[in-house]
């Protein structure tokens, strides 16, 4: 049977009484601590490049690359999912989490082959991030072009 709208609403009310509540505050605090810690590590890497005379603009690239390396390594070692379990978005939002979202499916789908397994599946989550990131930045750039570039 498919419930009517009214039955669904009544059921949602009943369901809400029994569902475990999400530990919103605890999760937020852990996200802050884990996300902050990963950012601080990133700052350490950035300072390393700054100290070698690379400018702040140019340091962002290599910093991201090192953080991606760390994220990929920790995922391979089977540690990153544990960090994510504790830190939630604190672990997933930093670029190390982006690396995790690439390595996790790539490892998992290696068994389905190099092309349609590993090669295709490694972008199940990173792919949309790049797609929508590029589309949005294109739109932003277009607006900038229309408003600010004199013709």
């Amino acid at each position: 049977m498919k419930a009517t709208m009214q039955q669904e609403q009544e059921f949602k009310k009943l369901q809400r009484k029994h569902l475990p509540s999400r530990p919103v505050l605890r999760n937020a605090l852990l996200a802050f601590l884990v996300g902050g810690a990963i950012s601080a590590v990133g700052e350490g890497v950035r300072q390393f490049f700054l100290a070698r005379g690379i400018g702040p603009e140019a340091a962002a690239g290599p910093t991201a690359a090192v953080m991606i390396f760390l994220g990929a390594l920790l995922t391979g070692l089977g540690v990153y999912d544990e960090i994510g379990r504790v830190g939630g978005m604190g672990a997933f939002l930093p670029i190390t989490g982006f690396a995790n979202s690439i390595v996790a499916p790539a490892m998992d789908f290696k068994r389905e082959g190099w092309i349609l397994g590993m090669g295709a599946k490694m972008f199940t989550i990173a792919g949309p991030v790049v797609v929508y990131g590029l589309l949005t930045s294109f739109a932003v750039g277009l607006v900038y072009y229309i408003l600010y570039i004199p013709r």
């Binding site: 996300g35 902050g36 990963i38 950012s39 601080a40 990133g42 700052e43 350490g44 890497v45 950035r46 962002a60 910093t63 991201a64 953080m67 939002l93 930093p94 670029i95 190390t96 989490g97 982006f98 991030v129 990131g133 590029l134 949005t136 930045s137 932003v140 750039g141």
Partner: peptide
């Protein structure tokens, strides 16, 4: 610093 560039919004920032 890295606190703004390492999380994913920083990726959008770099692109733009």
């Amino acid at each position: 610093g890295a606190g703004a560039t390492v999380p994913l919004p920083g990726f959008g920032h770099v692109l733009v």
